[in-house]
Computed example of a mutant assay.
Amino acid sequence: MRLDASERGVFPIAPTPFHADGRIDVDSIDRLTDFYAENGATGLTVLGVMGEAGKLDQGEALDVARRFIVRAEGLPVIVGVSAPGFAAMASLARSAMDAGAAGVMIAPPSTLRTDDQIVGYYAQAAEAIGADVPFVIQDYPLTFSVVMTPGVIRRIVNDNPACMMLKHEDWPGLEKISALRGFEADGTMRHIAILCGNGGLFLDFETERGADGAMTGYAFPDMLADVVRLAAAGERDAAHDLFDAHLPLLRYEQQPGIGLAVRKYVMARRGLIASPAQRKPGGALGKRAVAEVEYLLGRLARHDPRAALAPV
């Protein structure tokens, strides 16, 4: 199973479940993967920023990737392989592909400043991992401080046949999606899949601009799958109504610093993972924040029964 440019739907960014003492919780990996497969995911993405990839050593990262890949049999799994150097990137990429990954995701280092540097970096990365390895561009300037114009993305896509997908996380970014689809329409760029991140904050309109779906980690990935499905079916109002009901919780989860703590808390409350623990260093929710999240869940439950959880 290899990633290709026709991918669409929802590839949730999976968190890495941990026990309270920092050990990897493999049983929760299995439970979470089963949930994704049974609730509308068309693929998975592991070892992303919200997967706490930077807190794993090389062996642990590969073990986590393998566990998700084996459990997700039938679903394509993208593995984040971003690293300071190409040796580590290539090693993880090749090992992940040998384990059955569908492709890899590569983020640019924050040291890149010019268009030529960005294009050159992706050419070198593609060479390092192997020309036969499908890869995803991660465009997330809010975190990586690297601004990729539509023209730069077009150059990367056209120069690298193995580039199959863009993880679009620019903000604001709706015009970028329109520009890229415009390049396809005028024949100056081949088609690639575009899946969007940023917690899904703009998914309702991103799909209307030409995005193929979502690649993010909101605590209700099943809602994201429903929104993408409704949008594809032309049920615009239904898609927006469902999205709007989740927007207050989605916005709360998007807070820098505590966003992952919120996401893991809700996923643990839903029974998707056993513990909301992060590996240190990591944030935690205070009592007031927990109360606010519970309040938002209660309000959401009026519109979506999936948020009607047992009292704590």
Rank of each mutant, 00 (worst) to 15 (best):
M1S: 12
R2W: 03
R8M: 03
R8G: 07
I13P: 05
A20H: 05
G22D: 05
I24R: 05
D30N: 11
A37W: 02
A41G: 04
T42P: 00
G48V: 08
M50S: 15
G51S: 05
G54S: 14
D57F: 07
Q58I: 09
L62V: 06
D63P: 00
A65H: 08
R66Y: 00
F68Q: 04
R71E: 10
V79K: 03
V81N: 09
G85C: 10
A88P: 00
A90V: 12
L92A: 11
A101G: 11
G103H: 11
I106A: 08
L112W: 01
T114Q: 08
Q117P: 04
I118T: 15
Y121M: 04
A123M: 01
A128W: 09
D132V: 11
I137G: 03
T149G: 00
P161V: 14
C163Y: 06
G173W: 09
R181A: 00
R181T: 02
D186F: 07
I192P: 02
A193W: 04
L201D: 11
F202W: 12
D204Q: 12
F205R: 15
E206T: 03
G210K: 05
D212T: 12
A214Q: 07
L224G: 02
D226I: 13
L230W: 07
E235D: 12
D237V: 12
H240W: 08
L242A: 15
D244Y: 08
P248Q: 12
I258P: 00
V262R: 02
K264P: 00
V266L: 08
S275T: 12
P276G: 09
G286Y: 07
K287M: 11
V293Y: 05
E294M: 07
L300V: 13
L300R: 08
L300W: 03
R302W: 01
A307H: 02
A310P: 05
